[in-house]
Simulated assay, not measured.
Amino acid sequence: MFADPGAETTPFLYRIRCRHWNGNFAKSKRIFKNQNRYCSKGIFQGIKANGEKFNREWLVYSPSTGYVFVLSIQAEKEYWKQVLHRCIEVIKTLSERGLAFRGDNEIIGSPNNGNYLGLLELIAKFDLFLSNHIENYGNKGTDSTSYLSKTICDELILLMGKHVLQSILDEIKNSWEAHATAVSAVKENGESIEEALAHLESKEREKSDTR
């Protein structure tokens, strides 16, 4: 059962994916010129100039009020940010422990879908947001965006790896710059390069001995 976007008790982030496009439109009844008018599935789809159909993703229906809500782009971005946040935390947990990600399949609910999907399913038992997301988007195939696929997982791992590598390179660069500054300062006091490097080496050895 999807949450009702019109209910006051439904958290905002859950509302943006509870579209109810196939829901009961009974409460949408409006009387116009002595005729009963109802909301229909047709308003949630549009047709481009070339005849291609598309979903109006920014519209969502509330079965309890009979109203159609318009979503903001910012809310949509926040929704997917929350999904990615959970995916990244699972990736970090598996990577830190050196555990495999893949299973024999990518089917939500399968005991053989691997540690990545398995952990997301476990979190969903205690996380209503993720539970709703998996219910709405799990096992929908490649035509539906879910951020649960191995493709997105691989892309996140690649981006996280680049971020870690850049952090290491920045740390090395800062370390060398600090050493260069120290050498320059020692040279100004009349020591040779060899004496300056020996001085730095001695300082590094003293640090190691005190650890």
Rank of each mutant, 00 (worst) to 15 (best):
residue 106 E to P: 01
residue 153 C to E: 13
residue 96 E to F: 02
residue 77 K to E: 09
residue 108 I to T: 09
residue 46 G to S: 05
residue 81 K to A: 13
residue 74 Q to H: 07
residue 100 A to H: 07
residue 67 Y to S: 00
residue 44 F to R: 05
residue 151 T to R: 06
residue 122 L to N: 03
residue 138 G to A: 09
residue 37 R to P: 00
residue 60 V to M: 12
residue 113 N to W: 06
residue 152 I to R: 07
residue 140 K to R: 15
residue 118 G to T: 05
residue 107 I to F: 07
residue 65 T to E: 10
residue 42 G to V: 04
residue 30 R to V: 10
residue 48 K to V: 07
residue 94 L to F: 04
residue 135 E to A: 15
residue 111 P to D: 12
residue 79 Y to F: 11
residue 35 Q to F: 09
residue 130 L to Q: 00
residue 49 A to P: 00
residue 65 T to N: 09
residue 120 L to W: 00
residue 94 L to T: 05
residue 72 S to I: 09
residue 69 F to K: 01
residue 81 K to Q: 14
residue 115 N to A: 08
residue 45 Q to K: 15
residue 104 D to M: 10
residue 59 L to G: 09
residue 67 Y to G: 01
residue 47 I to D: 08
residue 132 N to P: 04
residue 139 N to W: 02
residue 98 G to M: 08
residue 87 C to R: 03
residue 118 G to M: 04
residue 110 S to T: 06
residue 88 I to R: 01
residue 84 L to R: 12
residue 66 G to D: 06
residue 32 F to H: 10
residue 118 G to E: 06
residue 57 E to M: 11
residue 41 K to Q: 14
residue 136 N to Y: 07
residue 47 I to Q: 13
residue 91 I to C: 08
residue 39 C to H: 00
residue 88 I to S: 00
residue 95 S to H: 03
residue 70 V to S: 10
residue 128 L to H: 04
residue 121 E to Q: 14
residue 145 T to D: 12
residue 30 R to L: 03
residue 71 L to M: 10
residue 77 K to Y: 11
residue 121 E to I: 05
residue 46 G to N: 06
residue 69 F to E: 02
residue 60 V to K: 02
residue 148 L to H: 01
residue 125 K to S: 11
residue 48 K to L: 10
residue 130 L to I: 07
residue 52 E to K: 07
residue 96 E to I: 04
residue 147 Y to S: 06
residue 133 H to C: 04
residue 79 Y to W: 08
residue 143 D to T: 15
residue 100 A to P: 02
residue 71 L to G: 07
residue 150 K to N: 09
residue 126 F to A: 13
residue 124 A to S: 13
residue 30 R to D: 12
residue 142 T to Q: 13
residue 142 T to M: 15
residue 74 Q to E: 13
residue 41 K to N: 12
residue 96 E to R: 10
residue 52 E to N: 12
residue 45 Q to P: 01
residue 83 V to R: 00
residue 71 L to K: 04
residue 33 K to E: 15
residue 54 F to M: 07
residue 118 G to D: 09
residue 117 L to K: 00
residue 103 G to A: 05
residue 55 N to W: 07
residue 69 F to L: 09
residue 57 E to P: 01
residue 102 R to M: 12
residue 86 R to W: 04
residue 40 S to M: 05
residue 82 Q to A: 14
residue 46 G to W: 03
residue 126 F to R: 10
residue 108 I to G: 02
residue 98 G to W: 01
residue 139 N to E: 13
residue 41 K to Y: 08
residue 68 V to D: 03
residue 119 L to W: 05
residue 72 S to E: 10
residue 68 V to Q: 04
residue 47 I to M: 12
residue 131 S to P: 03
residue 132 N to E: 15
residue 62 S to V: 00
residue 54 F to E: 05
residue 109 G to I: 14
residue 153 C to D: 03
residue 49 A to F: 07
residue 137 Y to K: 08
residue 103 G to L: 09
residue 49 A to Q: 14
residue 34 N to D: 15
residue 122 L to M: 13
residue 55 N to A: 14
residue 140 K to T: 15
residue 141 G to R: 06
residue 131 S to H: 05
residue 135 E to H: 06
residue 119 L to S: 03
residue 133 H to D: 03
residue 122 L to R: 06
residue 36 N to K: 14
residue 80 W to C: 05
residue 63 P to W: 06
residue 133 H to A: 03
residue 93 T to D: 13
residue 145 T to E: 15
residue 141 G to W: 08
residue 88 I to Y: 02
residue 64 S to P: 08
residue 110 S to I: 09
residue 123 I to Q: 06
residue 107 I to T: 14
residue 99 L to I: 04
residue 114 G to S: 08
residue 67 Y to E: 03
residue 110 S to G: 06
